[in-house]
Design a protein around this nucleic acid. Sequence first.
DNA 1: TTGTATGCGTTATCAT
DNA 2: ATGATAACGCATACAA
Lengths: 392, 392
Amino acid sequence: MREAGKRTRGRGTTARPGRPRQAEVARLAGVSQTTVSLVLGKKTGGAAISEETRQKVVGAAESLGYVPDPAARRLAAARNNLLGVFSFTATFPTDVQHSYYPFLVGVEQEAAAQGYDLVLFTGSSPGGTGGGTHALHRARLADGCLILGRHAPTAELCRLVAEGFPVVHLGRRDEPEGPAWVGADYVSASRGVVERLVALGHRRIVLVREDDEAPASTDREQGVREGLEEAGLPVGPEAVFRSADPARELTSDRVREWVADGVTAFVAEETDTSAAWRALNAALAEAGLNCPGDVSLALLGSPPPDAADGPTPAGFDIPRAQLGAAAVRLLAALVAGEQASEPLVACTFRPGDTLAPPRRTSPQPPDPLPGPRVPGRGRNRNTRTEQGEPTQ
Amino acid sequence: MREAGKRTRGRGTTARPGRPRQAEVARLAGVSQTTVSLVLGKKTGGAAISEETRQKVVGAAESLGYVPDPAARRLAAARNNLLGVFSFTATFPTDVQHSYYPFLVGVEQEAAAQGYDLVLFTGSSPGGTGGGTHALHRARLADGCLILGRHAPTAELCRLVAEGFPVVHLGRRDEPEGPAWVGADYVSASRGVVERLVALGHRRIVLVREDDEAPASTDREQGVREGLEEAGLPVGPEAVFRSADPARELTSDRVREWVADGVTAFVAEETDTSAAWRALNAALAEAGLNCPGDVSLALLGSPPPDAADGPTPAGFDIPRAQLGAAAVRLLAALVAGEQASEPLVACTFRPGDTLAPPRRTSPQPPDPLPGPRVPGRGRNRNTRTEQGEPTQ
DNA sequence: TTGTATGCGTTATCAT
DNA sequence: ATGATAACGCATACAA
């Protein structure tokens, strides 16, 4: 049935006119298609190919303007060199501030380096093929998949993971059976900040944070606690001020009280809103305390863009590009069947200009580093924030 | 030869564990693979499929998490719902200023709306499968492809186009056989700016531009000329100051001369460097002329970000997101085999605060509007910029 | 060293 | 209304 060449070409909707195939190159070069594949694929594969045939093939290919068909290549190779990127808010929101752009910088670079292209799954927006909660199904189109937003449908996600599909989440996750992830090492970074303060001579340091259970928050607190503990400083409740509404509850009176009580440095967590940081600055200003002089300040994260003109707060920056790159590396490793290693990426310390040694007028005894001194009403230091080391 | 199932799986380097295929869906549903393809492909193809089998198939596919393999689909000459994005500088450069981000905003939105996912081909960076000048080859994995940078290898590009592969370039192109494109309507926008100036009473207007042959430059000039002509104002060489090095050649003396000669308004083109605009401002400042008072100023484009604190220059903004969206719409149309329509996207006028009526002290006769002023838009006789409508 | 045969997953044609 | 079967273009185990 079917005469030769009956409908050999132009079957599909996208008729591809004269694209030369390996077979034609082969004919022109007087060799077999296999040889063409071998030569053009550069796969010396242990064996060699006579320089003569190689030349013939290359010449023929060139004169025909042969280019390999990626679809065919990928179909045959059983991989498509595609890494999916899933963001459960728009990947490119109109407000650049909240975008994943900084991560994408690293993602793209590393993907290119690893030889992958990126598939941007156009979010959970309607109109997409999958649509809605089933959006994740399209992920299988790629060799593996990167999750960006925090609002991925957990069930779907875990299903993918359970089925062995390589998935990496950008940002920490706590599910035991959840996807692999990479995240910033907030604990170490925060501890490092406290260490600097201690090194400068500060002995009473207060962390100001919002009332949030996000890992990003609890990690920072743990880091601060570790730093304090390490220096033998009190880690009791008086070391942390936690408020759901810092703007109102963090008053100038409260600040004055702290300072009178011997506090010489404040550390604020950084969040979407920077509420803690803003409130702290406002309260200090209202209390008439200025920053490097009267008290030292540090911000556990990058300053909000609208504060670009003030003094640069000391603290740390999240290496977003590196995080993106790390995520891609991890994903590539998973795709290749290798095992993943360290999911944490170190933050970089930002000296800023809000740090100084404490005023000597404070009521602190000038003793160096006191031992594990547990102050009067100190509850025990319960550093166990219990989120455990990442298992990935 | 070859026993059945001898090496059916795991041939490739990256064995993808359980990526379900249509055959497995078929087995689970108790039908043939063909039926699965029919059902999942929604191709009613003349025949119908019993609702019962359809349900079985859909159910099986869903429970298996089946997703069609894009490569296979492509190879079989079908569509992917994948749109390629090719940027010939990094898609996400570290310097956000120069990025395609604003375009991508629209691209993503419109792609989602049209039901496409995006494939970001990781630039011309080495390490990519194709690498170097052959980077464009990978495009064929998608149904069509968007070109972002200005440095795409023209030959390859035209080849794709010649072979009937849907390609849309973001930004004007002049090749007759080149890809379809969408671009900002600089001509109309520039003409509009001149019209405003004229409406304010300006009769002597000078365009300051760099020495560049890019369409973006010549279009602006043409728009200005059209605006002048329309108002019956002189469009001779004295209306355009063109310089390869405005910073040096656009002196304060030159500016004073113009003003003495009756010039009351300047229009500067906007480029990468904003050289014309900067030079103009510098010269005016040095000449002691201030802006809305002594002369009116307009900028044919968006002001450079580092000028954010000065007065907002009047002029127009390029609706980048809309451009991106328009590009996707066009590409989708091409993929669907439809014909393309209007490649130009209108810019939005920016009033700014650098415009005012001319000083009455100038030697202009206060006569109203001389000449054939056509107030309406008469949108073209136009744009005879000769790049013709895209032939796609 | 080169050629032969076969499969990758899908769509499309033609039989049933 | 379904099921075989043949491509699509390339890569590879295996034979020569």
